[in-house]
Design a protein around this nucleic acid. Structure first.
Length: 282
DNA sequence: CGGTACGCCTGAAGGC
DNA sequence: TGCCTTCAGGCGTACC
């Protein structure tokens, strides 16, 4: 569900409420949401993986991956998959109205108490513990390309120059670029005026530059609007985003292009629903 | 190796 | 009303 703008919004709202809070206790309702980075992780490592103690000192995001980092450097890495949510609750009673809550942390600071909940209906998401703050070297994170929020054209050019696959498929490849998902791939390609089906090796240098700028602008605008709420995305306070209101193409197949008025085209590309304007995107 | 197809889960929406 | 199919913002794996 969440792409870079949604994960960044969650990170920012989390920072505002949990930095400096100490983990008092953890309740885990489902064992399978806690994953291991590799098969050699010992039981002791796993037991500590959920950040059962310590104070939350900082947060970090790369692409769609999120991490909470404790003062001693241990990390909790969070991936939200399609339906994952992280929520902050001021009262334990507020938990009762939430379904599919898999892990709950009780956080304290002086007389303050808050609850941090990880929930995920479809369970495509998960949690990973790390013994050090060096999240970039975690196996899961080390495979990621540069963060899409500041993508340079050279990254796209390099990855695309010898590739015959559709440009949209490349944008969705987290090894090339981290953070773009199905919504913002379509939106960025519309902004750049590029047909999502174009083979990468037909894209000219100037177009890569345009596309890189379009990705940055699309994502920055979406972060400013606190992400897109289509179905169930919400920030850590449960507040919906507003970026869906300004989508130019995503979810608008058959509706008029806001630039030229032609009906937008909907296709399947790389097993993902794809919408574009056949006049504005070439 | 590059690229594509499928499966993992649940729930909402639409067709009949 | 209810049953069935399809689809959904992600990603890992198997396979060509």
């Amino acid at each position: 569900m969440p792409e870079l703008p949604e994960v960044e919004t969650i990170r920012r709202t989390l920072e505002a409420s949990i930095l400096g809070m100490r983990v008092a206790s953890v309740v885990q309702n489902r064992a399978d949401v806690l994953r291991s980075h590799d098969d050699t992780a010992s039981n002791a490592t796993q037991a500590d993986a959920l950040l059962r103690r310590g104070t939350i000192a900082s947060t970090h995001r790369h692409g769609k991956e999120l991490a909470l980092i404790a003062e001693d450097g241990r990390c909790l890495c969070i991936h939200l998959g399609m339906s994952g949510q992280v929520r902050i609750l001021e009262s334990q009673r507020d938990l009762r109205v939430l379904s599919h809550v898999h892990v709950v942390w009780k956080l304290t600071r002086g007389t303050e108490t808050r609850w941090l909940a990880f929930r995920d209906v479809r369970r495509f998401g998960g949690l990973w513990g790390l013994p050090s703050r060096d999240v970039a070297s975690a196996e899961r994170w080390s495979r990621l390309g540069p963060d899409a929020l500041g993508v340079r054209a050279s990254v796209l050019k390099q990855a695309g120059k010898a590739s015959i696959r559709a440009v949209k498929a490349m944008l969705l490849d987290q090894r090339v670029l981290a953070g773009v998902g199905n919504i913002y791939a379509d939106e960025a390609l519309f902004r750049a005026g590029i047909d999502p089906r174009r083979p990468c090796d037909t894209i000219r240098p100037k177009e890569w530059t345009t596309l890189a700028a379009a990705i940055r602008t699309t994502l920055v605008n979406a972060v400013r609007q606190r992400g897109s709420t289509l179905r169930d995305y919400a920030d850590s306070n449960g507040v919906a985003g507003a970026a869906q209101l300004s989508h130019a193409v995503y979810g608008r197949a058959g509706e008029p292009c806001r630039t030229c008025g032609l009906a937008l085209t909907g296709i399947r590309l790389a097993q993902r629903s794809t919408v574009f304007c056949s006049a504005c995107q070439r």
